[in-house]
């Protein structure tokens, strides 16, 4: 894939014309499918992994407008491999978790006690409260601009585009980029607060 053609595709996508990108998507999937099938064994799984990777590709090069790699198709293949590994790890984790749940359920049936069930429910509620608290506190730490962007995004009646002029962005793409960066900052803050809150909860037990 010539650099110039790829740059044009990304440039058009940034301007809102996604058609050339969709053509590139089809061509790349056709080119990579044999390699992806070696990993996933099924076309549907290969398609899923490919789409997840292309969403990240979109984030990096259309939203964040990072410098394009020398070989976009090769780069996307590596992204797909990353995505497949992450998916595999998640599936294994869920399988282990499901096994644990089944064993716990069997144990509970044998050693049935109302206190165990109540304790489990309490733990779940506590986990839910922690997550909600971490998110609320993290939102408060954002800059006023970021907070406005994230709050507008939550409100279905408001459109993000309406913030472009009031917040002083030269174009809509810059605003989309800012929203992406705010989200990343929010995730990091939630992570820090979750750790702090979990430690505090453990200490208070």
């Amino acid at each position: 894939m010539a650099d110039e053609r790829m740059e044009q595709i990304i440039s058009k996508a940034i301007q809102g014309n996604e058609l050339p990108f969709n053509t590139f998507l089809k061509e790349t999937f056709t080119a990579l499918l044999p390699k992806l099938l070696v990993l996933t064994k099924s076309r549907d799984e290969a398609k899923e992994v490919f789409i997840i990777s292309m969403q990240k590709f979109w984030e990096c090069f259309v939203i964040k407008q990072q410098k394009l790699p020398h070989n976009s198709i090769g780069y996307i293949y590596i992204m797909c491999k990353n995505a497949w590994l992450l998916q595999k790890r998640e599936q294994e984790r869920i399988a282990v978790l499901n096994n644990e749940i089944i064993h716990t359920q069997v144990d509970n049936q044998i050693n049935e006690s109302p206190e165990n069930s109540a304790f489990d429910r309490e733990m779940e509620a506590e986990e839910h409260t922690l997550k909600h608290k971490a998110l609320t506190m993290a939102l408060e730490t954002l800059s006023p601009k970021c907070k406005t962007i994230m709050e507008t995004d939550l409100d279905p009646k408001n459109q993000l585009k309406s913030l472009q002029e009031p917040l002083g962005y030269t174009n809509y793409q810059a605003l989309v980029q800012a929203k992406y960066n705010c989200k990343k900052r929010l995730v990091k803050k939630v992570y820090e607060l979750l750790n702090q809150l979990k430690e505090t909860t453990l200490l208070n037990r």
Binding site: K131, A134, L135, D153, L154, V187, V190, Y191, L194, N195
Partner: peptide, 21 residues
């Protein structure tokens, strides 16, 4: 924990454009 944080934020701020794409 980081994955958990990403999930919390993604679920709170569901991106309809991402979904449509």
């Amino acid at each position: 924990t980081y994955q958990q944080s990403e999930t919390i934020v993604t679920q709170a701020f569901e991106n309809s454009k991402h979904q449509k794409r």
